[in-house]
Design a protein around this nucleic acid. Structure first.
Lengths: 346, 346
DNA sequence: ACTGTCGTGGGTAACGTTGCCCAAATGTTT
DNA sequence: AAACATTTGGGCAACGTTACCCACGACAGT
């Protein structure tokens, strides 16, 4: 039954007393503020080490910075997001910032609550990955807390953005499939049920890129889009619908690898072979796409780089909140694997 | 250049003034504390709604609770962890708690820093998934903050645990393979580089369960374990080593699906077929295992349930810090798919 | 010697919330 | 009618940190 006594936390006051200086002095040393002699710094650092002092984020939050950054991801089960996150944490390795992930945001309501809760926790800045909130709400949020938006295609004066060129990415896939000889190329898109920001979302841009590329190749009549979600389930039901068409497509372009997974499920279930009967392509080039049993042709949008850029921009904005907003647009590349091949000869 | 003015946050004082009551009264209503009449509650709630008030977690943290729970995951790229997390958030749906995820802890040092940072942020409780810190350190942490440990096989008086019966899980796989006629069954385990808590870790228990089951079947001489990590890379290099054995195994049991992915990569690269030439089994029954192109035989350890139980225990412990510690042990089940079959007849 | 500047350090008042206590009003028992 | 219990609400002092000021001594330029 030996229970350790609930010892009081070491505070800045304890450090000050131990180092025989004022709390102000300790605070200054902690923040590398102006007005501290090397001798005092030495004393203070020694005291901090002796006592094992750690600043309280709560108390700091009440006054100023918390050295905490929040990242909101729409769906942690999607293997693309960990890559972005790795880029973020890599960028922050040498800083004193800690990253916290806010998971589970299904729907605009839940997303708003999640963002609110990050603000409540006085985070120093937030990175929102493909948020579905209306533009006005994002600007409102960005007015309260430094914000970087990942994925959305719209510039704002008060928040920075990092996005992949989804028009180009979708074109890469269509061009590749057309070059292989495909004409009936279908697309599985992600459609938000609460459509308040439709035209800025990466998923919509991808669908638009698909349509434009199809038209460019004179395939207007073959444009065929099914609307689901970027999940395995979404890809599965979407592909089921496509495979039941009287004249079924010879290629399916899923807007995300995770949806392509579902497409492959449906194709296998229908007893069709890939790429013999039907070609399949994805988007994101997740680790799953490179898996030997899958070997999915996919668009690489450099998730790591996206995360790294987002973190960098966020730190810059925290340092200078009135600086001009920046927009980073990254160019995707196509990684051709074995799920795409010429269509079957009839 | 219209920049929204940085408006001051609405505080409890504003609410109190607007509702014509004291700040104490507002605080009581917020916390459903004793001593508030229905009439006052009504007034206060109205004022809160009018002003859009949100309590500051920082200020709360300085005094008491922050209504924030932290979850530490060892590797967000492993698709098993999102399942646990979904269980956690589902359990907390109707509570006022917010979950934050602390990502990226490679090594004991990084893990300790991550835990420290959750304590610094005055979280109300933490869930540590398969932490690698020494036992003593975990007990130290649990003395400071309510803690639930997931995966570790050791009971403590001051923290609760939730774990899968890894001995039984490993036995399920070995029994299944033996029944199919396999004898040369190898295992890819996860080995921590900093071995301070070896014998409690789920990965070690799985390896031990494998050894025991092999002995039970009189296959002592066939025991063959390669030590890597539970990653795709680990599974890949581990399988490469196994496949180069003069008398290579007819079945490989990877301690995690994510490692099984790498095993399948290596097997494919070697030009062998699954399950024709070699059977492969995993652990965790992640969504990846059920994927049609993979169809991996795997042990289901009910990640969702693990997360839900962990969250429940944590709430109980927050409510009563001196309650007796609880240990939940869940029974795994085997999901047989198409990567396991009788060994090739020589 | 007298003023001004700079480097160094400290005092103090917030920041927003809640736990503890007390006061007044109301109800209940003797 | 007096004594006592209960309900309802408020005052006040922390919690740990930092921004803003001011004080002191040293030193340079007049």
């Amino acid at each position: 039954m030996a229970r350790p006594v609930q010892q009081r936390r070491v505070t800045i006051v304890d450090v000050a007393r131990h180092a025989q200086v004022s709390t102000t002095a300790v605070s200054k040393v902690l923040r590398n503020a102006y007005g501290t002699s090397p001798a005092m710094q030495q004393k203070v650092h020694q005291a901090i080490a002796d006592l094992g002092y750690r600043p309280s984020a709560a108390a700091r939050g009440l006054r100023g910075q918390t050295y905490t950054l929040g990242v909101m991801v729409p769906d942690i089960a999607n293997p693309f997001f960990p890559e972005i996150l790795n880029g973020v944490t890599a960028s922050l390795r040498d800083s004193s910032y800690q990253v916290l992930l806010a998971p589970g945001c299904a729907g605009e309501q839940a997303e708003a609550r999640t963002i609110e809760s990050m603000i409540d926790r006085s985070m120093d800045g937030i990175i929102l990955i493909a948020p579905i909130s209306p533009r006005a709400h994002l600007e409102h949020v960005a007015g309260i807390i430094p914000t970087v938006i990942v994925g959305r295609h719209a510039r704002s004066a008060i928040y920075d953005t990092v996005a992949d060129d989804d028009i180009a990415g979708a074109a890469l896939v269509v061009d590749h499939l057309v070059e292989l000889g495909h004409r009936r190329i279908a697309h599985v898109e992600h459609l938000e049920t609460e459509p308040s920001c439709i035209e800025e979302m990466p998923n919509m841009i991808r669908a638009e890129g698909y349509r434009r590329a199809m038209r460019r190749h004179g395939l207007d009549a073959e444009i065929d889009v099914v609307s689901r979600t970027y999940t395995r389930e979404g890809g599965y039901t979407g592909a089921r619908e496509l495979l039941e068409r009287p004249n079924r497509p010879t290629a399916i372009f899923a807007g995300a690898d995770i949806a392509a997974m579902g497409v492959l499920d449906a194709v296998a279930e229908a007893g069709l072979s890939v790429p013999g009967d039907i070609s399949v392509a994805g988007y994101d080039n997740t680790t799953f796409a490179s898996f030997s049993q899958v070997s999915l042709t996919s668009v690489d949008q450099a998730g790591w780089q996206i995360g790294a850029d987002a973190a960098r921009l966020l730190l810059e904005r925290i340092a200078d909140r009135s600086r001009r907003s920046a927009q980073v647009k990254l160019s995707p590349t196509l990684v051709v694997r074995t799920t795409t091949a010429p269509p079957p000869t009839p």
